[in-house]
């Protein structure tokens, strides 16, 4: 669904290698513009529910609420989102890893959650230091995290705490390196 924007749109500077993640839209005026009624209700509820987690950063990106969290609080945040009555995010859609090692030396793990009952969605972004990418596993909250986490471990080398069996899923055993990372020599192919 395309967001309801005026004809002028939002002016975004298009430069190469600019600030990559959408950290800049926390002002209230653009928030109200880019979210529809359902979304702004969700944002209000989230802000009140997470009042005791002051380090949460809320932002809006193209009509979707984005929550930034640290790896330590991830389990509590996810529990609250799954069981909280106004939220009920019972469906974990996707776990993505984005490699910002060159620019900011972090790996960003993005969780997309959807609520089947209220029909809204949210994204949680967790930044991990690239020298030691460890994040607690959400397998005990949503069972669909199983293979997504194994794939993230396989392709990017992210360690997930609190679960066993991180056997290789997509690559063969004995594969050298993490192909998802930008530092992987993708263009140098070894003949088989």
């Amino acid at each position: 669904m395309l967001p309801n924007l005026s004809t002028k749109g939002r002016q975004i500077k298009m430069t190469r290698n600019s600030n990559i993640s959408s950290k800049s839209e926390a002002e209230t005026s653009t928030v109200a513009e880019a979210l529809d009624q359902k979304g702004s209700n969700l944002l209000k509820n989230l802000k009140s529910a997470f009042a005791e987690f002051p380090e949460m950063v809320f932002s809006v990106s193209l009509g979707m609420v984005v929550l930034k969290s640290g790896p330590g609080k991830l389990q509590d945040v996810c529990e609250l989102l799954k069981t909280g009555e106004q939220f009920l995010f019972n469906y974990l859609s996707c776990i993505t890893v984005v490699d910002y090692e060159e620019q900011e030396e972090v790996f960003e793990v993005v969780y997309h959650l959807v609520s089947i009952d209220y029909h809204h969605k949210i994204a949680i972004k967790v930044s991990l230091p690239s020298s030691n990418p460890v994040v607690p596993s959400v397998l005990n909250i949503w069972k669909s995290a199983d293979w997504f986490e194994r794939e993230a471990h396989d392709l990017f080398g992210i360690q997930f705490d609190g679960r066993k069996n991180l056997a290789p899923l997509l690559l063969y055993e004995g594969f050298d390196g993490y192909p998802g990372r930008k530092s992987f020599p993708f263009h140098e192919y070894e003949e088989w």
């Binding site: 690559l171 992987f184 993708f186």
Partner: peptide, 8 residues
């Protein structure tokens, strides 16, 4: 072609 996991 030349993907990391494909045999050419």
């Amino acid at each position: 072609y030349k993907s990391y996991s494909v045999v050419m």
